[in-house]
Simulated assay, not measured.
Amino acid sequence: MTKVSRTYWLVLLLACGIFAVDVFVLPDVTPELKSSASEFFNNECKGCHRWARKFAAPPMRDNVQHYASDPAAMVEYLKHPTPQHPDEWPAMEITPLTEEQAKMMTAWLLYILKNPDDPGRPK
């Protein structure tokens, strides 16, 4: 290998390392994801959250709107829930979600926010 080609490959490898970025991607909202997320919501969230009204916790729609411009923050919150309004609401008593669960729920909840007439929207 010539000196020029070694230099070329070295520069290329360094550039790849410098510009390597974790890309945040939510899963596609397929019928299967909708079904799984809806079931998860009904089993884990609905006991306290309603979509558009206060119940034992803030309306889920309000929570989702808070994260609409930063879905990655919503995923992180679901993985590590901490009290957001301890003066108004008790802390969530949930097991932190896995990365996969948090991305599934974030994708579905943002979809519902943008598609409020979806028949699978929580009540």
Score class of each variant (00 low, 15 high):
H80T: 04
M92T: 00
A73D: 09
W108C: 06
W89H: 08
P86A: 06
E76P: 02
M74G: 03
L97D: 04
M74F: 09
P86S: 06
I112V: 14
S69C: 06
T82Y: 08
E100P: 07
S69P: 03
E99D: 14
W89Y: 15
A107L: 05
P96R: 12
L97M: 14
K79P: 04
D118V: 01
T95I: 08
Q65M: 15
D118N: 12
A68P: 08
A68N: 08
H66C: 10
P116Y: 05
M105V: 14
A102E: 03
P86V: 00
E88F: 09
E99T: 12
T106C: 04
T95L: 08
H66R: 15
E100N: 13
E100M: 11
H66G: 10
L110N: 09
E76W: 05
D70I: 00
L97N: 04
Y77I: 00
D87F: 03
Y77A: 05
P86W: 01
P90H: 02
E100V: 11
M74N: 04
Q84V: 02
M105E: 07
L78Q: 08
E99P: 00
P81K: 10
V75P: 00
E93P: 03
K103G: 01
A91G: 07
L97Y: 05
Q65F: 12
L110E: 03
M105H: 06
S69F: 07
P96N: 11
T98P: 05
Y67S: 07
